[in-house]
Amino acid sequence: MPLLSVKNLSVSFDTSTGPFKAVAGIDYAVDAGEVLAIVGESGSGKSVGMLAVMGLLPKTATVTADEIRFDGRDLKGMSDKERRQIIGRDIAMIFQEPNASLNPCFTVGYQIEELLKKHLKLGRRERREKAVELFKDVGIPDPAERLSSYPHQMSGGQCQRVMIAMAIACNPKLLIADEPTTALDVTIQKQILDLLMKLQADHRMGLIMITHDMGVVAETADRVVVQYKGRKMEESDVLTLFTRAQSPYTRALLSALPENATGNRLPTVSELMSADGAGASA
């Protein structure tokens, strides 16, 4: 039985020009200890889908699903209070902008200790020890001293490490990473991805990696879901995706990678999809 299973998820938003369907009937399934990458361009609904599962969307969104099941429990029928207990503890999430996800008014140590207090009910002393330990795990140098730093005193990469430390603080079974390295430089991206993969393996976590970057997919994923305009275009294991992609959209996307260019022109998605005779059904 998968750790998280979502069936026929749809999300639509009210806009001034009428309802807009961001996700149209998608199934997701993640096993424990598995890395699932959800890939898509902007407007593909890749983040919205996961936010809907977490119940983090604003009121203007309408979410429907046949099933949202996590670790054998039904998230859909659950009260908000019950769901909040699971989220943040068994399911954790990290976002694209590490600086924006941390509260600038408090030290990072305070923020991580608050979290430990709320979810693990630890005493003051234990909290501090656990925080230091977590900082050590995510590779922050001088962990004890860094606890009293404010977010603005840390670099983007350091802040993302803090976010990861907070995310794994309660030993979550599932970690959702929404474009965790998009705002970072490539050398830092490499470190953060390596860190995530190491933690994932050590804790046997399920990891959902939401990204637009095929390079990140190649370096992290076990299985890949490709999304386009709120629909699933393809789902396959990572090797199959890069060698024998089934859907024309995926093939088009892969050939639009500059490193796959032959000659001095890049094939574009629209050209390829019309050549394949399978234009996107809008």
Partner: peptide, 11 residues
């Protein structure tokens, strides 16, 4: 070295 590559052999 840090730049992620979608290279089949590496995968």
């Amino acid at each position: 070295a840090a730049t992620p590559r979608a290279d089949v052999e590496t995968i």
